[in-house]
Amino acid sequence: MDRTDDDLGAEHHPPADGPHGASGLTTGAVARRLGVSPTTLRSWDRRYGIGPAVRDEGRHRRWSPGDVAVLETLCRLTAEGVPPAEAARVAKEAAAAPVPPAPRQQSPAADAGPGPLALGDVRQECRGLARAAVRLDAPVVEELLTVAVEEYGVTVAWQEVMVPTLHAVGRTWESSGDRYVEVEHLLSWHVSTALRRCTRPPAPYGGPTPGPVMLACVPGEQHTLPLEALNAGLSGLGVPTRMLGAAVPAEALTAAVRRLGPSAVVLWAQARSSASLPLARHVADTQWGVQGARRRPQVVLGGPGWAGQPGHGMLRPPTLQEALRILQRGHGATGAR
Rank of each mutant, 00 (worst) to 15 (best):
M1S: 13
M1A: 00
D2I: 15
A16R: 15
S23R: 08
G28F: 13
G28N: 15
A31M: 13
P38R: 06
T40N: 01
L41E: 07
S43L: 13
W44P: 07
Y48E: 10
I50P: 06
P52Y: 08
D56W: 02
R62E: 02
S64P: 01
S64K: 02
E72S: 06
E72Y: 03
T73C: 08
L74V: 01
T78G: 06
E80G: 09
P84M: 12
P84H: 13
R89G: 03
K92A: 15
A97Q: 03
P101Y: 01
A102L: 09
P103L: 05
Q106W: 11
A110W: 05
D111Y: 13
P114F: 02
L119A: 02
D121V: 11
R123N: 06
Q124V: 14
G128A: 07
L129F: 12
A133W: 09
V134C: 05
A138V: 15
V141S: 03
E142Q: 14
V147Q: 11
E151V: 05
V154Y: 03
V156Q: 04
M162D: 01
V163A: 14
V163F: 02
A168M: 02
V169W: 10
R171H: 15
R171W: 13
T172A: 15
S175I: 00
S176C: 08
D178R: 12
V181K: 01
V181N: 01
E184G: 12
S192C: 07
R196T: 11
C198N: 11
T199F: 13
A203M: 15
A203F: 04
P204R: 11
Y205C: 10
P208F: 10
P208D: 12
P210L: 11
A216E: 01
P219K: 00
H223N: 07
E228Y: 10
E228S: 15
N231Y: 07
A232S: 14
G238F: 09
L244P: 08
G245I: 09
V248N: 01
E251V: 11
A252W: 06
L253E: 04
A255M: 07
R259T: 11
L260Q: 08
L260T: 14
A271T: 08
A275D: 03
S276F: 05
L279H: 02
A280Q: 02
R281F: 01
D285F: 03
T286P: 02
Q287P: 00
G289F: 09
Q291G: 15
G292E: 12
G292Q: 11
R295C: 12
R296N: 00
R296K: 14
P297Y: 04
L301E: 00
G303S: 04
G305I: 03
G305R: 00
G308L: 03
H312S: 08
L320D: 05
E322R: 06
A323P: 07
A323F: 12
A323D: 10
R325C: 04
Q328V: 02
Q328I: 00
R329F: 14
G330D: 13
T334H: 10
